[in-house]
C-alpha cells in the first residue's frame, strides 16, 4: 500500500485495502466469538453471588441446627450463646423494636417531606432540597452510630433521666433519620408521576391544595408510596452499625425503647469481633441468625417489588 502513496496522482484504493485486511480478520472474528462468552461469565458473577449467599447461609445454618434444635432456636426466649442458650426471639424482638421506632420516625417525616416537595415547593426549592435531603442517605452508618451515641442519647437523657447510654430509642431514632430520604425521595417520585390533569380536575371543582393531595395525589401514588416504605423498612432491618454502636449488646425481649437491646445484625458483629473459633456453635450461630435476617429482608424486598409491579399506575 505504500506504493499507492509514493506514486503521486495515483489514488489509494480503500476497498482494496479492506479486501486485503479481510483475510487478517480471523483474529477479529475470534474475538467477536469470545467476547459474548466472557461477558456472560461476568454476568454470571452476580448469579454466583446469590448462589454463594444461599449456599453459605444454608450450609452453615445446617451445621448450627445439628447442634441446636430448630424449635429451640425459633421458640426459645433467651439468647445467651456463651452459656449455650440459643433462643433467637430477643434478637428478632430487638430488630423489630428498632425497625418500629425507625418507621415511626421516617414514615411521617418522609411522607410529609415528599408532599411538601412534590406539591407545595416550587421547582427551585425542590431542586435544592431534594439532593440535600439525599445526602442523609449517603452518610456512612458508622457516622450515624457515633452521632446517636454521643449526641442523640445525651439529648434524650435530658428528657428521660433514666435512659441508659445504650438504648433502642436513640438507635431506632437515628436509623429513622437515615431512611427518611428513601421514603421521601421514592414517594416524591411516585407523586410527581401523577399526571397534572388529575390535579386540575380537582382544582376545577374548587378543592384546596390539601384536599387535592389527600383525595387525588396520595391515592394515585399509593403503590409507589407503600413500596418506598417497605424498602425503607427492609433497610432498617438490615442496618448494622448504628444499632451496634448505640443500641447495646443486651439480648433482651422487651418493647421498652429505653432499654438496651441487641439486634440480629449487632449480634453478628459482636460474635465476629469476639474470640469466636471457626467451627464452634457460636460461629455457626452467626449464619443461623444471618439466614433469619436474610429471609426478613428478602421477603420485604419481594413485597416491595410485587407492589410496584402489580399496582404500577398507567396513566
Amino acid at each position: 500500500m505504500d506504493k499507492g502513496l509514493q506514486s503521486e496522482g495515483k489514488m489509494i484504493d480503500v476497498q482494496q485495502m479492506i479486501e486485503r485486511n479481510k483475510n487478517k480478520k480471523s483474529f477479529g472474528e475470534r474475538i467477536e466469538k469470545i467476547i459474548p462468552f466472557f461477558l456472560l461469565l461476568c454476568a454470571a458473577v452476580s448469579v454466583l453471588t446469590t448462589v454463594g449467599i444461599l449456599f453459605t447461609l444454608l450450609r452453615e445454618s445446617i451445621g448450627f441446627f445439628s447442634n441446636v434444635s430448630l424449635i429451640d432456636f425459633y421458640t426459645g426466649t433467651s439468647w445467651s450463646p456463651w452459656s449455650g442458650e440459643y433462643g433467637v426471639a430477643p434478637l428478632i424482638g430487638g430488630t423489630l423494636l428498632i425497625t418500629l421506632i425507625a418507621t415511626l420516625v421516617a414514615v411521617p417525616l418522609g411522607l410529609m417531606s415528599a408532599i411538601f416537595l412534590s406539591e407545595y415547593a416550587n421547582d427551585k426549592v425542590r431542586r435544592v432540597i431534594k439532593p440535600v435531603l439525599e445526602v442523609l442517605a449517603g452518610i456512612p452508618t458508622v457516622v450515624y452510630g457515633y452521632f446517636a451515641l454521643t449526641f442523640i442519647t445525651p439529648m434524650f437523657q435530658a428528657f428521660i433521666p433514666d435512659l441508659g447510654i445504650f438504648n433502642a430509642l436513640s438507635g431506632g431514632f437515628v436509623v429513622g433519620i437515615m431512611i427518611i430520604p428513601m421514603v421521601a425521595s421514592l414517594s416524591e417520585d411516585a407523586m410527581n408521576s401523577v399526571p397534572n390533569a388529575l390535579r386540575e380536575g380537582a382544582y376545577g371543582l374548587g378543592a384546596t391544595k390539601l384536599e387535592v393531595v389527600f383525595k387525588v395525589v396520595l391515592p394515585a401514588a399509593l403503590s409507589g408510596i407503600i413500596a418506598s416504605i417497605v424498602l425503607a423498612i427492609s433497610r432498617a432491618i438490615g442496618e448494622t452499625m448504628i444499632v451496634t454502636i448505640a443500641a447495646g449488646a443486651t439480648p433482651n425481649l422487651t418493647f421498652n425503647p429505653t432499654e438496651s437491646i441487641q439486634t440480629m445484625t449487632a449480634f453478628i458483629v459482636q460474635a465476629a469481633t469476639g474470640d469466636t473459633t471457626f467451627g464452634s456453635t457460636i460461629y455457626y450461630s452467626l449464619y443461623a441468625v444471618g439466614m433469619t435476617l436474610f429471609v426478613f429482608t428478602l421477603v420485604m424486598n419481594l413485597i416491595a417489588q410485587y407492589i410496584s409491579r402489580k399496582f404500577r399506575e398507567e396513566y
Binding site: 449467599i53 424498602l231 438490615g238 448494622t240 453478628i268 458483629v269 428478602l298 424486598n301
Partner: peptide, 14 residues
C-alpha cells in the same frame, strides 16, 4: 435487583 437489597452484613458472611 434483589442483591441490591441484601443487607451488607450478609455479604460479610459470604
Amino acid at each position: 435487583q434483589n442483591l441490591a437489597g441484601v443487607p451488607s452484613i450478609v455479604f460479610g458472611l459470604l
